[in-house]
Design a protein around this nucleic acid. Sequence first.
DNA 1: TAAATTCCTAGTAAGGCAGTAGGAGATGAA
DNA 2: TTCATCTCCTACTGCCTTACTAGGAATTTA
Lengths: 154, 154
Amino acid sequence: MNVSTKSEYGLRALIYIARHSDVHPVSAREISAAWHVPVKYLEQILKTLKEAGIVESRVGLGGGYRLTRPASLITAGEVIRILDGRIAPFSCVSETEYVPCEFEIDCGLKTLWARTRQAILSVVDHTTIADLARPASESAAPSQPILLKKQIGR
Amino acid sequence: MNVSTKSEYGLRALIYIARHSDVHPVSAREISAAWHVPVKYLEQILKTLKEAGIVESRVGLGGGYRLTRPASLITAGEVIRILDGRIAPFSCVSETEYVPCEFEIDCGLKTLWARTRQAILSVVDHTTIADLARPASESAAPSQPILLKKQIGR
DNA sequence: TAAATTCCTAGTAAGGCAGTAGGAGATGAA
DNA sequence: TTCATCTCCTACTGCCTTACTAGGAATTTA
Ligand code: FES
Ligand code: FES
């Protein structure tokens, strides 16, 4: 049970972008300086995020990153899934990376994993970058449940 | 977000012991054969569980393992913590292995991790080996909330 | 043209995970 | 008393993942 630095840095970067990209796009260097994250590492993370369609970029002087959608429509779960892979604690209960188990029959554990997954999803899939970007004092509670056509897997 | 094979095998072993140790203790070899888990690996896991006070053992012919407490008083969370370490997704929200972060002030993430941890705990700390040992058909739902003097950390 | 920026590919050091290996010592049955 | 069956203990190992570092190519603006 652990979330990697990729997800951590990725979310931090998105929070920063959400807060500061009104005027012009935000560069990796700027984020890196703000949060003390290695620039080159951050570049890779942002590249992944770009390929996943979370951010868009502009190269060259004055370039940087911007969100492709309002921060209130990007969930933490989505970001973690992109950067860390599967959220479910076990592959036999993952929707996005489902791998069956040898003992599915009479394996009491499956239900436990499924419940755990559901519990995690109920948090991360209902917390948006907008929630996180709010100053800490205002409490980073999800504004309101997000409606999804189909519950995003895992 | 992942639970290791140690926790998986450990829980499986405890489930097996809960089901079959009425007459005589259960040997590692027996569990290993039932679940296709490497014996030597299982021995190590059971040893850890013994040191943590979850099982007791008897060496020699006819020996094996038994639970030290009723299965209904051993939670999955406890076992996972013993075998996998920290359950919280991030160290700054762990009670048992707390390590502070550099940016605790205005770091919107902390709340997210804390909520996630709480969600996970609400499942794993309220599911017992007894719940898991019930046949799958009866649904492995926790019988009833467990009362703890003080909520076990993380 | 120069500086800033993203994009792209490789490499790498350390640590964790999932075991394997090889006994030593206890115990009960024959 | 001997033998098979257990647990107990320590060490080792191969593989994979994580968390970066390194070096530059291409693009854009001043
Ligand atoms: S752990 Fe996947 S079915 Fe039991
Ligand atoms: S991640 Fe620990 S305080 Fe922000």
